[in-house]
Design a protein around this nucleic acid. Structure first.
Lengths: 152, 152
DNA sequence: TTCTACCTTGTAATGATTGTAATATTAGAA
DNA sequence: TTCTAATATTACAATCATTACAAGGTAGAA
């Protein structure tokens, strides 16, 4: 874990971001939660244990800073809040409208290769592929006899 | 235009939505503004001329109703508000981060055919392809000697 | 140490959206 | 037509994510 923290520190320095304690912890949290796609609130609540003086504003500022420097990727698939993704490799996202889970989708669209492409003359800097529906797990419980389901 | 209004009315009835005056006008507005991708506020402000008693809540209710019945498509590319698209044919969107314009992108990803597909076992109901960058028009003015630019 | 630049913090403000309760309108029964 | 029940519309309050702002804290340079 100490080695990991050193990697995080290097990442910040490479992007010209001063590696303060708050920033290190926030980026570390994101790097350890690749599948969560955490919200600002999730980052804040969790880190409050480590940093009791942490301010929500700091989390917002820091994450916006990371976004600008392209250290993290913002996922707005829910439409209500930004989810943060430490994995900036090209990939898409799926939102289950039943359980709310956000799942990584690895598929290649021809247009997305290189990520810095041109479409219809427009320069593309970011590609967001959002798929919405019912996830595999939730699909299994649909249309079956409801034995002990809490919701209708 | 009267013929168009009749088409709008039929559309609503087909979806089981009672074609009230407000609903007709809202859907008509969207059908006449395919390239705008209007916000709730835009719909409201514009229709206030025709319907001075119109309530913002009604616009929200109506558009949510249309969304549920899949009469319109919600575009959340800006991350700050929902834009409404009367064109529910499969297509993607591009957001220019300079001028804020939202432009339709017509390209086919193999995975999107049929729109009701399965990816990694998840049932896909909606596909949103969001591309962000600098549009063709804005690209031309970047890197050139700034002659009379208002912003820095 | 003192100064300066940048970070962090708390609180207030904003803006989009939803909740709620009262009023209005409509469709169908009598 | 008149009454009634269901549904729509409206106005206003409340909520939630996010940003603005001002004040206090910290680290490194001089």
């Amino acid at each position: 874990m100490i080695t990991n923290m050193e990697k995080i520190k290097t990442l910040l320095k490479e992007k010209g971001i001063k590696p303060t304690f708050q920033r290190l912890k926030i980026l570390e949290y994101l790097s350890n939660n690749l599948n969560n796609h955490p919200t600002v609130e999730m980052v804040y609540e969790k880190l409050l244990n480590d940093i009791p003086t942490l301010s929500l504003t700091t989390v917002y500022n820091t994450l916006n800073n990371f976004l600008e420097k392209r250290l993290v990727f913002g996922v707005t698939i829910t439409g209500t809040e930004v989810r943060y993704d430490f994995n900036t490799d090209y990939h898409h996202h799926f939102l289950c409208k039943k359980c709310g889970q956000i799942i990584d989708i690895d598929l290649k669209c021809a247009y997305a290769e290189g990520e810095k492409s041109i479409i219809s003359g427009h320069r593309i800097d970011e590609i967001h592929g959002y798929f919405k529906g019912i996830c595999k797990a939730c699909s299994k419980n649909v249309g079956k006899k409801p034995k002990s389901r809490s919701s209708s």
